[in-house]
Amino acid sequence: MAKDELDYGEGPSIIRPFLRRTFDAPLEAAPLAVDVPAAAPLAAAPGADVRAYLMTGGRTGAGAVKLEFESMLSLTERGRGTRSSLTFERRRIADACLEGAQSVAELAAKMHLALGVAQVVAGDMVGDGLLNVHQASANLADDIAMIKRLIQGVRAL
């Protein structure tokens, strides 16, 4: 991976301090107090200082393009070209995809993002032509040849 002046992944960075814990520490390292009063739902947001959906502009569900958790993402030429000008999550997702196609779930796990957040941000990036999606066709469940191939493959594992 090319070292750019903005490295959001590791090391000293210019990340806004209130975001840093999300990026630098696994969630387990930042346990919430157990005895959060039930009447304080905001305090019970995902285990970090920043509420996850801040990154998605408050949206849940799908981004511009609906992705599955297992959808594989790869950088488009455009994504490759504009990578260094992307910000925050977009940049980190693009960087992660430099090494090869990644699923939404793997991106979420590696970046310590909630699944729904990765889904929305990456979906927007697909919509903006930065990422390609590789996912099974919607009628996979009726694709007998594909299912048979899968069965053979699992047998051979």
């Binding site: 969630l27 039930a38 019970a44 995902p46 996850a52 796990a109 310590h112 909630a114 699944l115």
Partner: peptide
């Protein structure tokens, strides 16, 4: 790999099964 999905406080006080008493976060690990 573990991912988290945000979860509401509805689970507070429910996750008290003996084997999982160390679960203190309010995220669902998947």
């Amino acid at each position: 790999l573990t991912t988290e999905a945000a979860m509401t406080t509805v689970a507070n006080g429910i996750d008290d099964r003996g084997a999982v008493t160390t679960k203190t976060t309010t995220t669902v690990a998947m």
